[in-house]
Amino acid sequence: MTNLFIDIYALNEGAVTVVFGEEINLILAGKIRRFNETISRYPFPGMITTVAAYTSLTVFYDPVTLFGAGLPGLSNFDKITHYLKNLAIETNLDEVMPTKIVVPVCYGGTMGPDLDLVATAKKLTSAEIIEFHSSATYYVHMIGFVPGFAYLGGMNPELNMPRKTQPRAIVKAGSVGIAGAQTGIYSLDTPGGWQIIGRTPLRMFDAERQQPSLLQSGYEVVFKPVTMKEFEYLKAHNDEN
């Protein structure tokens, strides 16, 4: 038995959630990333996909395929629990390095209408907000909310800022926002209440792309400030990247 994860529970008849801990931190996130990598490399019969979250990894499977596969255990839940525990023991979990993505962001102005507001609230200059925001390395804890929306951890606590009291009816895709201790990038035009400080020209989500969501849980992200002109250029050349 291993102490890699602390609990497993059934989400429904086709999914179990593996719990790794109870609070957000990078050690836990690293465990989840490595376990996710391992199980993707050694899937069990009927496994469909996984969904990583802050402290858990949910594994989806086809109940009939799993049931017929002859793994030890009387029920699917027993079979999967047994498999995952063994997987945690038998595999070397320390070798996978996260993928790093550089996200260009045009801060302020029409692209980041809340930048000045955040600066005022934090008693900092807009330039300092940009400096703080673009000098950290962020970690993608999970993709959720809408297709391709990444929840990023690792923001400088100086930038913590509550959501807007009145959410916007439409936040443009690519908008980079702050909500509490989190920062994130809107992947689609959606309603939203995050404080918008900039926008990336990258297409965060594209249903036609081989990998529709640019970011995946377990990735690292750094923001690189760009001018409006660079933004326009990059946006126009999106399809070539």
Binding site: T49, T50, V51, F60, F145, P147, G148, F205, P212
Partner: peptide, 10 residues
């Protein structure tokens, strides 16, 4: 669409 849940595709 079961295979893209990790990208928040419902």
């Amino acid at each position: 669409r079961m295979s893209y849940l990790s990208e928040a595709i419902p």
